[in-house]
Deep mutational scan, measured.
Amino acid sequence: MATDAALRRLLRLHRTEIAVAVDSAFPLLHALADHDVVPEDKFQETLHLKEKEGCPQAFHALLSWLLTQDSTAILDFWRVLFKDYNLERYGRLQPILDSFPKDVDLSQPRKGRKPPAVPKALVPPPRLPTKRKASEEARAAAPAALTPRGTASPGSQLKAKPPKKPESSAEQQRLPLGNGIQTMSASVQRAVAMSSGDVPGARGAVEGILIQQVFESGGSKKCIQVGGEFYTPSKFEDSGSGKNKARSSSGPKPLVRAKGAQGAAPGGGEARLGQQGSVPAPLALPSDPQLHQKNEDECAVCRDGGELICCDGCPRAFHLACLSPPLREIPSGTWRCSSCLQATVQEVQPRAEEPRPQEPPVETPLPPGLRSAGEEVRGPPGEPLAGMDTTLVYKHLPAPPSAAPLPGLDSSALHPLLCVGPEGQQNLAPGARCGVCGDGTDVLRCTHCAAAFHWRCHFPAGTSRPGTGLRCRSCSGDVTPAPVEGVLAPSPARLAPGPAKDDTASHEPALH
């Protein structure tokens, strides 16, 4: 009773807030009518008042009428009001819900409408889902798969039609296919003929059939049928067999079959498995989609049935006599038709004709302190090069084509190399640097090759510096006499390219 009084008091307290929050009759008014909170006449009256005075006034009048009803109607109103779709449509209802007392429970059932309790003993237990329907569909599909699609060729003596089998029958139906081979029951999904010589313990000319048996419980189990008994694959494991010639990621696949039913060829011909030897223990289905393919039931050349050999690369099948050149017997292992072999060759040939990528240039590290003349020119003028003790990398590039010797140069053309002071002394051009340390401070000019250098860098042994005729380390061993002091540049003949010694390969005349 306390809860009923509290709900009535809360409705009177929030009546105006609810009326202002509800700006549309749908969905709240319609939901109240659906849950029998508002009768039909009051529903029509509220809609009429909404058209006349507006939605807030109409709902305020409806809530005032609701306060005169019993506690069950008020409880049902609060339940409908706080439904998710009403809270989404009328956003101003959320503060009312947040301020609702926590001790007021809106989930209690309506009085007088409590459903009768059902004894637990009368409640049926839930049924577990079964796979009976899938099993029945598999039974119905198996006879259809064994139905012949056409008439065999005159040369083929193997013609068999499976008798119709009602689904209610649980007995196995067997077809006489000759040579002791028996087909599987209607619940078998796949059958492959297997030679009895590969099964340990088999006697006589009995041949087993590799099947997948579907049981009534819905589970499946792969086994071997020899005669009327089934054997699990673990009985046929043979770890010492060295003649297993397995197909790549293979499961067994029928390579020879008669049109209309699988079996042995007439005249004692023995149908073979995809792999010879003992049956392997793992009978998992292969991951290669080509091995799941269903080959055609007629020859791809003459479009006739009979004894066919199936290609492992495509769905086509052929007569042995229709092949070019014809085959006398079934080859062992994987067999592919000429079209598949030709496609494989065409895929391999473009790969062989692809040009080989060019090898990157060989990189040879230079000892610290040495650099090529090109690196000396590329440096920024007026700045010493940083990191001189790091190992430089010199790339061996292809030799350029031989060019004509340089033409003779006048001494005026070499004027930018040297600057003559007032006393006739050779001065260095701006930006000249030593080729060893890279520093341009207090550098000297070689009178023979006009290269800038430090005496301490080229002659670290402490050799005394002569007063005139300074030469760098590369030119100090040259027998050519030094030019007379005061000459602007060496003779043009000295600039012609010539053979250089091994220790002077990195010091070429550089223009500054």
Rank of each mutant, 00 (worst) to 15 (best):
A5D: 09
A5N: 05
A5S: 13
L7N: 00
R9C: 00
R9P: 06
L11V: 03
R12V: 04
L13C: 03
R15S: 01
T16R: 01
E17G: 01
V20M: 05
D23I: 02
A25T: 05
F26E: 00
L32R: 01
D34C: 00
H35G: 02
V38F: 01
D41W: 05
T46E: 14
K50C: 04
E51F: 00
K52I: 07
E53Y: 01
E53G: 01
P56L: 01
P56T: 05
Q57W: 00
F59A: 02
A61V: 03
A61G: 03
W65D: 00
I74E: 00
I74T: 00
L75D: 01
L75A: 03
D76F: 01
D76I: 03
F77S: 01
W78A: 02
W78L: 02
L81D: 04
L81G: 01
F82W: 00
K83A: 05
Y90G: 00
G91I: 01
R92T: 01
R92I: 00
L93F: 03
L93S: 01
D98I: 04
S99N: 08
F100I: 02
D103V: 03
D103Y: 06
V104I: 08
D105K: 05
L106Q: 00
Q108I: 00
P109H: 13
R113K: 12
K114V: 06
A117C: 11
K120I: 13
L122R: 07
V123R: 08
P124T: 06
P124Q: 09
P125W: 14
P126S: 02
R127N: 11
L128E: 02
L128M: 14
T130H: 05
R132N: 00
K133A: 01
S135R: 07
S135K: 14
E137M: 15
E137D: 13
R139G: 13
R139N: 05
P143K: 03
P148G: 03
P148I: 15
G150W: 15
G150A: 00
T151P: 10
A152M: 15
A152F: 15
S153G: 13
S153H: 14
Q157M: 04
Q157C: 13
L158D: 07
K159I: 14
K159D: 06
P163H: 06
P163W: 15
K165V: 09
P166N: 14
E167R: 03
E167N: 15
S169T: 01
E171F: 15
Q173R: 15
R174P: 06
R174H: 07
L175Q: 11
N179P: 15
N179E: 12
I181N: 15
I181G: 05
M184D: 00
S185Y: 03
R190E: 06
S195V: 04
D198E: 13
D198R: 06
A202T: 07
A205W: 00
G208M: 02
Q212W: 01
Q212A: 01
V214G: 05
F215R: 03
G218P: 06
G218Y: 06
S220C: 13
S220M: 12
K221N: 10
C223M: 09
C223L: 08
I224L: 06
Q225C: 00
Q225Y: 00
V226G: 07
V226L: 11
G227M: 00
G228C: 06
G228F: 03
E229N: 04
Y231I: 06
S234V: 13
K235S: 08
K235F: 07
G242T: 00
N244H: 04
R247P: 03
R247I: 09
S248F: 11
S250F: 12
G251R: 05
G251T: 11
K253D: 00
P254Q: 13
P254W: 11
P254H: 09
P254V: 13
L255R: 04
V256I: 05
V256Y: 14
R257D: 12
A258C: 12
K259L: 09
G260F: 09
A261M: 12
A261C: 11
A261P: 11
Q262E: 14
A264D: 01
A265R: 07
A265V: 11
G268V: 10
G268R: 11
G269Y: 06
G269L: 14
G269V: 11
R272L: 10
L273K: 04
